[in-house]
């Protein structure tokens, strides 16, 4: 598991375990998980974990973490032990003690990786800035391209929304309730009697981005974005969350009506 995903699990822990209610299903899976983190020495073209302080090295929350060391024909992994379970497992694998040169080599590789991110997102004051952007004309701009396919929410490691599907057998004696993943880009996501609260793609994209980068801070004390870049990679029309956030920062206070907000 990569550092960005591990950060995402930390964020989901806050959502499902940190509030007044505990998600018992999540808790069981979480308690039983054994996590091997793989630190990234090479970033992808859409990565910006360095901007989000979630990588390229896993800071914690793992049982074992690996950093790949390659030099000529030498191919080794520097292993960091994060838990007793991790230490137990490592004892069953042949290994030798790392020395300072290995630690320095790994540190240099990770530092170099964090300086070669494919994307960058300036998060300073972003959550506050987004509060003033609700009526920005930038949302029309992105809504003109967005297909509301939901790929970004499907690939995002922190998108936690779910719905319930109810089924019965033909006799009606037996009923099941399934909790299923759901996307805020779906039309009926916001349905209340009389219609959807967010009927337009403009309002749905706005909900997604403002939640991810803005209101998440107020709800859970962190950003909802870990900079994995998958929403960029998997967007069929190439919408780039880092670029959209920058557009909002620069031009977000221009309202659709053409005037300045606030």
């Amino acid at each position: 598991m990569r550092a960005c995903d591990l950060s995402a699990i930390g964020i989901l822990d806050t959502v499902f375990l940190g509030g007044p209610f505990v998600d018992s299903g999540y808790k069981v899976r979480r308690t039983n998980a054994f996590v091997v983190a793989v630190n990234c020495t090479q970033s992808g073209g859409t990565c910006f974990c360095a901007s989000m302080n979630s990588g390229p090295a896993a800071a914690g929350g793992f049982d074992l973490s690996l950093t790949e060391l390659i030099e000529g024909s030498r191919h080794e992994f520097l292993v960091t032990i994060g838990s007793d379970n991790g230490a137990d497992l490592l004892r069953q694998v042949s290994s030798r003690m790392a020395d300072d040169s290995h630690l320095t080599e790994a540190s240099n590789l990770l530092k170099a990786c964090s300086q070669r991110m494919g994307r960058e997102l300036d998060t300073r004051g972003l959550a506050e800035c987004l509060k003033k952007c609700y009526e920005s004309n930038q949302w029309e701009n992105v809504a003109g391209r967005c297909l509301a396919c939901g790929n970004c929410t499907l690939t995002c490691p922190t998108c936690f929304c779910s719905t319930i599907e109810d089924t019965t057998d033909l006799g009606g004696d037996h009923a099941d309730r399934f909790r299923k993943w759901d996307s805020c880009f779906n039309g009926d996501f916001s349905y209340i009697h009389g219609g959807a609260v967010r009927p337009t793609i403009r309002s749905r994209y706005r909900q997604w981005l403002v939640h991810k980068l803005g209101t998440w801070h107020e709800q859970f004390g962190t950003s909802g974005c870990v900079g994995c870049g998958r929403c960029i990679t998997w967007c069929p029309v190439g919408i780039d969350i880092a670029q959209e956030a920058m557009n909002l920062r620069i031009r977000g206070d221009r309202s659709a009506a053409g005037g300045k907000e606030n």
Binding site: V15, F16, G19, P20, F21, D23, F160, C161, S162, T163, I164, D182, C184, F189, S190, Y191, I192, V197, Q207, H211, T215, E218, Q219
Partner: peptide
């Protein structure tokens, strides 16, 4: 206030209203 709601305990995300659940 009223919004769509699936879970009532802050898990499903449907009832978000800005930062509020």
């Amino acid at each position: 206030m009223e919004r769509n709601m699936k879970c009532a305990v802050g898990f499903c995300g449907h009832c978000q209203y800005g930062p509020e659940f």
